[in-house]
Design a protein around this nucleic acid. Structure first.
Lengths: 235, 235
DNA sequence: AAGTGGTCTAGACCACTTC
DNA sequence: AAGTGGTCTAGACCACTTT
């Protein structure tokens, strides 16, 4: 191991925790003890412990010490792009419409307000496997209908109006029978169960700015999530 | 703000990024510049930048500087417990069975090997809203059938054999029509689309140790995921 | 050569917990 | 009072990138 010292210390402690040598709620050696053990400074030991704390393996309590945390078996990371089911998008239509009730509620539109709609069908090997609808509140000041040829994800569509870093999304996943337009676009009968993925895009302060619905056929395969929080690469 | 200095610095920089004052791929001031600006040491500035790097807002490049990262709009955090759909669990049956093909494949069981099965129905306000099956490879050495009265999650069932911290789980979410036993247990007809959540529990080195299937009726509501990585509480 | 981040030290003082 | 983690300093040297 030619890692930095604090990486090596973190690895050794992590191994003890993952192997069960240190069990949940156990107390780790104190920072001073670890500094003596590894013949280093307290600062370096703290860097190692910070890593484990970020990974959720350990929690520091002032005046007490570092405790091994019980595992978070209910937290999963799901990678699911607006635009990465895999396949070719074919634009179905773009237009300005009065939205249906679900969309109006999600976007908090009042009566009479309209939305720009982008509808696409996703093809894989020539077969329709998903149907995608995107709704953005219609704003007379903004040229609403753009990019009707290619496929754009939400953040491209909203780029001119919102800083990319300021938006977040809530996904809702449910099972449903296809709606009439979806059944037609996907060429499936009404009894094929589809996976519906609804996407609500919000500003940092919670105002809805866009709403999307995707209907996935069984050909898309399952949506997969892995336990553990997403960790940004720490070399 | 009576936060620590490094927290205050992180907040100011974070605000500039989220508001769009600093855009993706922009270069932040160097550590030395920031140390001068905030009249502090390089170490304290680094602590602030570390936070932003963990949040994925910024990335350090040696010899160059800190760059604002493009947003990760495809990464979501899903909280979905083995046992927290909400409601009361009623044990249906516990037994040792030859598993069906899907289960045998997931658990990599060879022909003739059996599995301990736990079946439960989840009730909410007296109504069946979910059906739950758990499979654990049958091992003669281990008392397989235990806890048949109450409901136990996977990590309780596996606690005696595996250190809690050493296991991870993969979820697969898909839409399906109910299987015959599920339809019967849930009292739904075969054309109600259900959400199926399959759960594969693995050791750290990838050996499967348990498999579960949950069938959720529309009454369970959608599965919800939020964009952004799960951040362990950093006070 | 000069500037950047990456690692590390040997202190200091504070706030909190336990005895 | 003694031990714990929390914050902060003022240096040092290294590796990498740019000029």
């Amino acid at each position: 191991m030619s890692d930095a010292l604090y990486i090596r210390i973190a690895k050794k402690l992590r191994k003890k925790i993952l192997s069960g040598k240190l069990m949940p709620d156990d107390l780790l050696p104190s920072e001073n003890e670890l500094a003596l053990t590894y013949k280093t400074s307290r600062v370096t030991v703290r860097k190692a412990l910070d890593i484990l704390e970020h990974e959720g393996l350990v929690k520091a309590r002032q005046g007490k010490g570092y405790y091994v945390q019980p595992p978070q078996h209910s937290v999963f990371t799901l990678v699911f792009g607006d635009n990465d089911i895999g396949g070719v998008y074919r634009s179905q239509e773009v237009g300005v419409e009065p939205p249906d009730g679900e969309v109006a509620a999600a976007l908090k539109l009042s009566d009479g307000e309209k939305a720009v709609v982008y509808r696409h069908v996703l093809l894989r090997r020539g077969k329709a496997i998903a149907y995608d609808e995107k709704y953005i509140p219609h704003d007379r000041d903004v040229p609403g209908v753009e990019n009707d040829a290619g496929f754009a994800d939400f953040y491209e569509l909203l780029r001119d109006r919102y800083a990319a870093m300021s938006l977040r999304t809530e996904l809702s996943i449910l099972s449903c029978a296809p709606s009439a337009p979806a059944a037609e676009a996907l060429c499936v009968s009404a009894d094929v169960p589809l996976l519906a993925v609804n996407r609500l895009v919000l500003t940092a302060d919670g105002r809805p700015v866009a709403y999307g619905r995707q209907y996935l056929t069984p050909d898309c395969g399952p949506i997969v999530a892995r336990s553990g929080q997403f960790l940004f690469q720490r070399k």
